[in-house]
Design a protein around this nucleic acid. Structure first.
Lengths: 123, 123
DNA sequence: CGCCTGGTTCGACGTGTGTCAACATAGACG
DNA sequence: CGTCTATGTTGACACACGTCGAACCAGGCG
């Protein structure tokens, strides 16, 4: 099944990240840019998703089994639901290895979001 | 009235920003940290709010009159509603000067969110 | 093959959220 | 003081979203 369709939030080609939009402070975002960027923010706008994302991102090797991170206070189907949302937002990728499913962060997305919030002076 | 209660997202004391939480990649966030940080992300998780925020942030002097930024495709009450949300999230502050109301970004919040997304290697 | 464990999908339900029209408030200006 | 412009507030409504239990797929193992 591949990856449920990952949004074209940004072009991640290894190291050189091409962000979807300029920094928020550079100029007013267009409607299209805002639509794109808001998807990422919205994906992280839920406490459970944020914990799941952080758990994956901070896990050794940048990846984690669902069984390792599903202790966030909600039922297991809900965990799966949120992981799917994060995957659809392009923040995570999943891979099945035998019995377990591993989730991995997309580092380029983190970098792009960081640039979005970069201060002009602190750049 | 004053500022509708600004959330204690972080302690902004001029230059030294004390972020609410460690970088997402450092360790799994606690439920409390996630709750706090998710509020900020959620506030930016709407395209209209993101455009409004970007319009204010990119405006000269870091502040903008409502009349300057209310051209985002929704009705005026909706604009006011979103600006209120951004204010409640601690991302904007408002000030009435005569006839017009000016909104201003809270730069420390931007910095804190940037740190939240900072990559450990790219730090 | 049958079953058990790990994970996802489905269906349903309650709450939250974005939106607008209508009304209310704050200054400016005559 | 009355009125006009600029914003904010209220009430209502439709839709999206988070959550769960139950049913369903995928591998491993006896």
């Amino acid at each position: 099944m591949s990856n449920t369709k990952v949004l074209p939030l940004l072009e991640a080609d290894g190291r050189g990240v091409t962000p979807c939009c300029p920094p928020l402070t550079e100029r007013p975002m267009t409607a299209e840019e805002a639509e794109t960027a808001a998807r990422m923010f919205k994906a992280l706008g839920d406490p459970v998703r944020l914990r799941l994302f952080s758990a994956v991102a901070s896990h050794e090797g940048g990846e984690a089994c669902v069984c390792d991170i599903s202790d966030v206070g909600v039922s297991q189907p809900t965990v799966s639901h949120h992981l799917k949302k994060l995957k659809e937002a392009g923040l995570l990728t999943s891979e099945r290895r035998g019995t377990w499913v591993y989730y991995r962060v997309e580092p380029s997305v983190l970098a792009a979001m960081g640039k979005l919030l970069a201060l002009p002076a602190a750049a």
